[in-house]
Amino acid sequence: MGAKADKVMDVCLQAGEIMLTYGAETYRVEETIERMARAAGFTNVHCFSTTTGIFLSFEESKGHGDLMQMVRVDDRMQDLNKVAEVNQISREFTSGILTVQEAERRLDEISAAKIQYPIWLIHLAAGAAGGGFSYLFGGGLYDFIPAFFAAMISSFTLVKIEGYLRVRFASELAAAFFGSSAAIAFVMLGFGASIDQIIIGSLMPLVPGVPLTNAVRDLLSGDLLAGISRGVEALLTSLSIASGVALAVSIFL
């Protein structure tokens, strides 16, 4: 096994792992990896990826030096910026601008980088999204403010509880529960009128938009396994949000 093949295998799998972890579609992961391996001069390149792992195999030259490796991807997060950056690196690598070493260095940087927006801005953004949607779903203009704070509370709970528990569905349930409890409390204290719209607003930041869109895309491109598992992920998230709200509504209303 040549040293170059070893290196290229690592770089390809690292790129794939970052993309899959941070919310790229399966077809994009497979296509990116296959292109990079082909651009590095290997033949018989095959990549198979599901929502939780990537397999990659190629040959150093026709009929010689077969290589095969897999990585398991445990975390699934949402950071579309990292997906876009890895996409950019793969494009530059394929067209020969980047060498293998440079690509590896930049992938390391991306994988170590923090999320591009500061955390307080994310909470504020969750508030703006929640408040905006409470208005769009038929709430009054004055409901913007309680929905803003309720959505901020649910976003804050999600981040904090996920940090301690590291159980995704439990933290979504808790976030939905605290968000809608806050919404009910605001209305009971006299801030805001339409309680349903404020509760919906407080839940909007938790909506599984990325898995849902990716599920459609994966199913359509024939990645049935990945598509179904993403769809189930989105369904589970929706169910844990629904149970969180149901809990809050049946206790406090």
Binding site: G23, Q78, D79, L80, N81, K82, A84, E85, I115, Q116, Y117, L121, I122, L124, A125, A126, G127, A128, A129, G130, G131, G132, F133, Y135, L136, S155, M204, P205, G209, V210
Partner: peptide, 16 residues
């Protein structure tokens, strides 16, 4: 308001 709300969502999802 849609513009503002979607801007918020973009930041949550960390759109470039």
């Amino acid at each position: 308001i849609t513009f503002i709300a979607i801007l918020g969502f973009g930041i949550i999802l960390s759109v470039p």
